[in-house]
Amino acid sequence: MPTAAAYLGAAIAEIAGCFAFWAWLRLDKPAWWLLPGLVSLAVFAWLLTLAEVGAAGRAYAAYGGVYIASSLAWLWLVEGVRPDRWDVVGASICLVGAAIIVAAPRAPA
């Protein structure tokens, strides 16, 4: 699986899993919401292992940029709050940083 697809899937799974906990604690949803949330968080962890990056820490660091951009998409699509220009600028900077981390030329380990 290409790294970009792994990161995007992981972001969706992580945000959905965390949102299930948010909904239970902050939006008074029933406790059963935690079950799909836990499954979603397990899927997130599995998908992150599919990133084609040589070291776990580097994979997690690069994933952070994708997570930030995906969180703003969630904000807009699920919560109905449109990101402002500062959200977009910040997420863009994070995505550039993630691309540098993943694509930088490195000597073999």
Score class of each variant (00 low, 15 high):
Y63A: 04
V78R: 07
W86M: 02
R82P: 11
A103R: 11
R26K: 13
W86R: 02
L77M: 14
R85N: 06
T49Q: 13
V88F: 04
G65I: 03
L41Q: 09
E52V: 03
A55D: 12
F44M: 13
D87M: 05
A51C: 06
E52R: 12
L38I: 15
V89H: 00
S40R: 08
Y67C: 10
A51S: 07
A31M: 13
A42C: 15
T49Y: 12
W74P: 06
A107F: 07
A4P: 02
Y60K: 07
C18M: 11
Y7R: 01
V66S: 01
L48V: 03
A51I: 04
A107V: 12
P2N: 06
V39L: 12
F44Q: 03
L77T: 14
A56V: 14
W24F: 14
V78T: 05
V102C: 04
A51W: 08
W33G: 00
A45T: 15
I68G: 04
G64S: 14
A73C: 10
P83E: 10
V96E: 02
F21P: 14
Y63V: 00
W33E: 01
E14T: 10
K29T: 08
I100Y: 07
A51K: 08
V88T: 07
Y7N: 03
V66N: 00
G9F: 09
G97A: 08
A45Y: 14
V89G: 03
A20P: 07
P2D: 03
A91G: 01
R26G: 12
A31T: 14
K29S: 10
L77Y: 13
E14A: 10
P30F: 05
V66E: 00
L34Q: 07
D28Y: 13
R85H: 08
A45F: 14
L35W: 13
R106H: 14
A99C: 11
A73I: 14
A16R: 01
A62D: 06
G90P: 01
G97V: 09
A23E: 03
A99V: 01
W33I: 05
A62I: 05
R82Q: 15
Y63E: 02
S92V: 02
V81A: 12
E52H: 07
A4S: 12
W33Y: 09
V43D: 08
L77Q: 11
A5C: 09
C94Y: 00
I12L: 14
